[in-house]
Each structure stands twice: as structure tokens, then as C-alpha cells.
Write a protein that binds this DNA or RNA. Structure first.
Lengths: 334, 334
DNA sequence: TTGAAAGCGTTACCAT
DNA sequence: ATGGTAACGCTTTCAA
């Protein structure tokens, strides 16, 4: 049914070794046979089997990608960047949605191993770092993107969350806000912790005290951001600005303000983090600390491919600079 | 390095055939040897190579998924549903972003063929239907989702776009609107054409005339929706309602109205199509015709898997019913 | 209940 | 410049 190297060989009246050589451009082959073989491959619509060639020790040119949920715009944008660069360099990417569950992570990793992927890019949180250690022990190239596992020598690409937090605080401070609340993700998430740390640090450097009752820890869901923001806005003391640790939470805050008829940014300023498509689509559009998702994805792929080609064995941690995107959800305190 | 079936066999003092049988639960194996083999597989952390087993004629348990752009929330949500169900049934999915370009489609298909995927789910537009015909001639299972290629016997899962268009019109009509504009996608897109057709049909059945100057054909981009909506709103005759053929265009319309200080829905109603996360996040949140993305994805996978298992060879076209989700972007004409 | 051996589509080494 | 052949890790058939 599908043409194989044997079909080509017999059709061309040469050996399979010769065909293999012309496919891979190896060895010395006369222009004449080369052309003949190419012509026949074309005519028979021959596609060399990656499967078979992988079996002989070559690569599968396939990467695994672990994300919590591709329907989350942040990860969708990262995934797009990764697939683009992967494709550019000749790799396919297998998408895996983990829902941030270690058990699913383990299942997917096992599957990817069975399929002999050349490397795995991980954008999902992992609690048990043994999972990764085991993987690394196997010598499989790994890179972490947008997540980190401290104290593990693994290639990592992240944005500087601490600086991002600082930038958010600086912006709000410059606008004259002093009563500021934070909508954070679970403190198990390293990036969220760092964003908060940068934020608080900048406040205290400005001689301001962050009021702990203004800190709300949320799930990663619009709904939860909304209910926590509602608590904030209904409290006796009301903040004049909110720092949401991601776009989803910021949207929740926006909805809470709307529900309470509190103007944004007139009565309350909201700044978020990520700069996914969501932040440009809300009303008002969100001022946000942008993660350079495209470069992050590209970099992650470049790292893993280098590591697959064994061009490098030093592990590195690349920290990208965030950037503030000022839209319309923040304004001077009045 | 990685344990193979040989390692297990020699460790267990049996033949590789025996090991193969216990892995696949085939043939008759004594409980004793079975347990021994299992124990050793466990101890050696053995992962059977899908590559090798695929080479012997079995499947790769991998599906290709062609989407225009995974960072578009509609396709991200579809992709999530597909990956979920695929994983459920034992299949991995390779994601491919085509940007709706036939050349990229062809490149990806060729790659997927080389990797011996068991089937391809296509959610991307294709102009040259020969591409598909060729694929089908190879006997590779294919299913189309959210796109169709008329006059081609291929499994297809779509929402009833015509009915969806009718529902949108009916809603607007019930609210008393008569001057209604349409923001459509390229007329090459079958679904957009159908939505429009249903919409116009319903209007004319109500004895209303659709004014052709109220039809704007757009790209698939927020920006374009905005500029086209702006033209509409700045015209001498201004519509009191807009039907946008997808969420992105509706967002553009929302932005246009905001820029012109036209209240939504007080001065103009906007209804959209898709019900991606975007429609719930805008202000006001969008009334929209929902596509059941989750079921569509699940169904597509079920179809392709059946077809892989050769349980079925009849091609079918499954048309799902859309549903209107009323939010706050539409109201009675005043 | 178990095993030997052929075969899957390539690559790579060694001959010619 | 070209070809023969072992090897990759597994499944399957046939024998024992």
C-alpha cells in the first residue's frame, strides 16, 4: 500500500542502500542514479518512515509539551510559539494537558517515553520533583518554561517575576496609590510568590506598608478572582488599586467592580500580569505586565534542540525581562 | 541504556516471545511467569517501544490535529476537547498550526504521514480539495471538525451554522431590531456563509429586508472587525444591532462602539457566534450563539478512532445543534 | 505453556 | 559508485 524503500529500489533497479543514501544525501552517488531515484520517489509518492529510521537509533523528531490546559490563553500562546519554532527546526510537538495534576504528568511522561520523543518541554507545575529527577536520569532532554523547580539543574526559561512585581508596584505608586490589594495564585506557585515579593518589596522601599488583609489567595479561575475581589471591595477599608497576578484574576476583579458599580479605573485601578489576548479584550483593556511569550517559546525550543543534538550539556536558566503594557485600567488616584 | 524486551527476557530466563505475550496479555502464560515478568519490568522501569511495535504493523496511537492557530481560543478549546478524549482512548495528539495556508497544510500532512499517525483531525480551512482526496486515497482516516468541504465523502462534525444564524436573527428580531448589520468572515468560509444565509432568511421570513450596505466582510482579526464596525457606525444610516459571525469580530464591534461612545446594548445590540471564553470576558459580556466545542471534539475523536479500528467505513456528517447564550450585549430596541 | 524465527522499513558498516 | 547484510525492538506464526 504505502511505498517503501524496497519499492523504490526495485523500481529503480538499485539496492535499498543506494536509495537510503540518496534520501539522506550521504555517500557518493552519481547524479544520474540520484535523479532517477528522486523521480521514482516522486512518482510513487514515497514518504520515508520516521518510525523505521527512529528504530535504527536516529531521532523521532518529536517533542512532548506538557501544559496545564491548552484552552488557557497563556498556555495556548506559549504552545503556538513552541510549535512554530519546533516546526521550523523539524520537530513535531505532542500536546499534553495535565490540569496541574502530578498523576496526569506521570502518565503523560510514561506515554511520551514509550513513543521515544526526543525531549520534553514542561510548562506545568510539578509537585514531586522526583518525577523530573527520574526523567533527567534517563538522559532525556528537558526544559522548563514559565515554571521553575528551584534546586534542580534543568534548563529553564522564565520571565523575571520579581522584577515584574516591582514594575507593577512602581506603576501604581507613581499614580499615587497607597492602599493596594493583591490577588495572588496559590503560594505553591513559585512565580506568583515572586511577583508578590517584588511587589511588596517595592512598596516597602517606597516607605509604604502592605496591609496583609489586602492579600487574597485565589484559584486559577475568573470566578474565584471575582469573589475574592468582591470581598476586598466590600470590606470596611477599600483599596484604590489591585494587583492581580494574572489576567484571569484581573478579569474577575473587573467583573467584581462592575457588579458593585465601582468605576475602573476612576474609582479603582487594576493591573495584571501576562498580557494574554484577554487583557486587550476587556473593557477597559488591562494595564498588564507582559511576559514575552513568543520569545520564551522560541528559546525553550532552541535550548531543547541544542540539548538533543548534544551541542550542550551545561544547564542554564534564562530569565527574560518583563515589560509593562499600559492600557486603560489604571489611572492616577484621585 | 533503556531496557528492552530482551533485557526483560534474559533477566526472567524466558524468551522475548513470552515477554511480548505478557505485555499484551495474549496467548496462554502461567500466572507464575507472568508475575515474574511483570516484576522485572517494574524493577527495570521498562517502557515498551511504541516505535518498534508500530513497525510490526500495529498502530502508533497518535493522531494529527490541524488547526489554523492554537492561540485562537476557539481552536484552543476544540483542541483541549480532542486531546482529552484522545488521551482517554489511548491516543496522543500532534498539534499543527497551519495559518489556513494550503502549503503549510501540505507540509504538515507529509510530516504526519512520515510519522505514521493513525489519523488526522482537520479543523483548518483547505482550498484545494485534492489535498484531502489524495489523503483519503491512501486510506488514512480523516475527520473534519468545524469546517466542511462540500461534496467530499469524509467524516465531518459541525454545528448547524444555518440554524445558528437563524437563532441570532430571531433573537434580534424579538427585541424589535430591524436595522441590522452583519460582520462576516471571508465568503470562502462555508460556515460564515451559512450563518449569514440563516440570518438573512429569518429576516426575510419576518418580512424584513436586509440592506446590503450593512454587510461587511472581514478578516479574522479583532482589528478588522473594529474598523469595519466603525464604518458601519459612522455611516449615514446606522444599524441598531450587529450580528458578528464570531467572537473576535464581535469584540472589534464592541471596541468600535466604545470608541464612538455608543452604548452597548443601550444604543446598539451586538450578538456573536462561538461562545469562546472571550465572549464571557468582555464588557458587556456577549450574547452569542454557542458551538458545543467540547462535544464536537469528543465526537470527532470517537469517529476517527472507530474508523481506525475499522469498525466503520460509512462516512457520516454529524451536525450539532447550536444554542443561544444570552448575556448583556443585546437588549430591546428603544 | 513456551520458544525460534521471520518480518516490519530503515541505517550504517563493510565489501566490491 | 553501489550493494549485501546485520541491527534496531517488537509481534506473530508455527512448532515443540
Amino acid at each position: 500500500m504505502k511505498a517503501t524503500i524496497y519499492d523504490i529500489a526495485s523500481e529503480a533497479g538499485v539496492s535499498i542502500a543506494t536509495v537510503s543514501k540518496v534520501i539522506n544525501g550521504k555517500g557518493k552517488i552519481s547524479a544520474e542514479t540520484r535523479n532517477a531515484v528522486f523521480a521514482i520517489m516522486e512518482r510513487l509518492d514515497f514518504q520515508p518512515s520516521v518510525i523505521a529510521s527512529a528504530l535504527t537509533g536516529k531521532k523521532t523528531f518529536t517533542l512532548g509539551l506538557l501544559v496545564p490546559d491548552i484552552s488557557n490563553p497563556f498556555f495556548a500562546e506559549i504552545a503556538r510559539a513552541i510549535e512554530d519554532q519546533g516546526h521550523q527546526l523539524g520537530y513535531s510537538v505532542v500536546m499534553c494537558n495535565t490540569d496541574n495534576k502530578d498523576e496526569k504528568v506521570e502518565r503523560y511522561i510514561s506515554l511520551l517515553l514509550q513513543k521515544s520523543v526526543d525531549g520534553i518541554i514542561i510548562a506545568t507545575g510539578i509537585e514531586k520533583k522526583e518525577i523530573l529527577e527520574q526523567l533527567m536520569a534517563r538522559g532525556l532532554p528537558i526544559v522548563l518554561i514559565a515554571r521553575e523547580l528551584p534546586m534542580l539543574a534543568v534548563d529553564t526559561v522564565v520571565v523575571d517575576d520579581y522584577i515584574g512585581g516591582c514594575m507593577a508596584a512602581k506603576h501604581l505608586l507613581e499614580l499615587g496609590h497607597t492602599d493596594i490589594a493583591i490577588l495572588a495564585e496559590s503560594q505553591k506557585v513559585n512565580s506568583s510568590r515572586e511577583r508578590m515579593r517584588g511587589f511588596k518589596q517595592t512598596m516597602s522601599e517606597a516607605g509604604l506598608l502592605f496591609k496583609e488583609q489586602f492579600l487574597k489567595i485565589c484559584d486559577y479561575k475568573v470566578e474565584d478572582g471575582k469573589s475574592k475581589a468582591l470581598e476586598l471591595l466590600q470590606g470596611v477599608e477599600r483599596p484604590t488599586a489591585i494587583f492581580a497576578c494574572n489576567d484571569m484574576l484581573a478579569i474577575g476583579a473587573l467583573q467584581a467592580a462592575k457588579e458593585m458599580n465601582i468605576g475602573v479605573p476612576s474609582a479603582i485601578s487594576i493591573i495584571s500580569f501576562d498580557n494574554t489576548i484577554l487583557s486587550s479584550v476587556t473593557n477597559p483593556p488591562l494595564t498588564t505586565i507582559a511576559q514575552p511569550m513568543e520569545q520564551m517559546g522560541k528559546l525553550a525550543v532552541d535550548l531543547i534542540v541544542e540539548s538533543i543534538k548534544e551541542k550542550k550539556q551545561l544547564k542554564q536558566r534564562t530569565v527574560l525581562w518583563p515589560e509593562i503594557v499600559i492600557r486603560e485600567s489604571t489611572q492616577e488616584k484621585i
